[in-house]
């Protein structure tokens, strides 16, 4: 009696998703038309915006992990939180870097401290802070509590970042997609952008889950090799 082994693993899905990311990048470089105002350099949007969205989504996962950890007081949810913080930091740094590189030929500056950029920078700082905090406090309820509280703060920054271009005067332009009156992006361009956002969203979730699994396995490995019975 042989059970058919499921071919679906998180690693397999990640491979497929990364291939789709690559396809979206090809579309961004070779299929979508050029922009009337910015010329070719606007194609950075197809990486910058999906990356930003992924960093927000990671904060959402971090919020879930943090709230569950605070409620159950269990260590178990810290692995999810830690994975979300790592992936969140990754995408936030990527967003800041691509945004800065895009800013130079368009705005004329690599950086400015307007509300959008400042709150985004804060997000990166807090994600990094989470990882440092986790490493600094010894295992126990105190660590779970502190990290979870920071996780909630990180999630609170996300709507502020999103609304910053509406609430304050900024160099960064207002929202392009989600706005009253419909999006201000041409159809072809918008399709590839939405495709990119969707794919990057699933990629970030997948990365978080693989990392969480790995962290759990690492713990299992440590317990087994130390001869500790859980």
């Amino acid at each position: 009696m042989t059970a058919r082994k499921s071919k679906f693993t998180l690693a397999n899905s990640l491979t497929v998703l990364l291939a789709l990311v690559f396809v979206q990048w090809l579309l961004a470089w070779f299929w979508v038309p050029v922009d009337e105002a910015q010329g070719e350099v606007y194609r950075i949007v197809y990486l910058h915006v999906p990356g930003a969205f992924a960093s927000f989504l990671s904060a959402g996962v971090l919020l879930v992990g943090s709230l569950l950890a605070l409620r159950s007081k269990s260590e178990h949810w810290l692995n999810l939180s830690r994975a979300a913080a790592e992936v969140g930091l990754l995408f936030t740094l990527l967003t800041l870097a691509t945004g800065s590189i895009w800013g130079k030929p368009t705005w004329g500056v690599w950086w400015t401290w307007d509300a959008r950029l400042t709150t985004s920078f804060l997000l990166a700082l807090m994600y990094g802070g989470w990882i440092l905090l986790f490493g600094a406090i010894p295992q126990g309820p105190s660590r779970t509590r502190s990290c979870s509280i920071l996780g909630v703060m990180i999630a609170a920054d996300v709507p502020i970042i999103y609304k910053s271009v509406t609430w304050w005067r900024t160099l960064h332009q207002p929202q392009t997609i989600l706005r009253t009156g419909g999006s201000t992006m041409d159809g072809d361009m918008l399709s590839v952008l939405l495709f990119g956002i969707a794919i990057m969203a699933v990629v970030s979730i997948n990365l978080i889950l693989v990392r969480q699994e790995t962290l759990s396995l690492e713990q299992e490995l440590e317990e087994k090799s130390l001869g500790v019975t859980s």
């Binding site: 690693a11 990364l18 070719e40 990356g51 740094l93 990527l94 990392r211």
Partner: peptide, 25 residues
């Protein structure tokens, strides 16, 4: 140069992290 720099960073960050994850797994 700006386009290449951005997408190169994207590749290194995303595909690099994924590769590191798979290797450690």
């Amino acid at each position: 140069p700006y386009l290449v720099a951005c997408y190169a960073l994207g590749f290194v960050f995303i595909f690099g992290y994924a590769a590191w994850l798979c290797r450690s797994r």
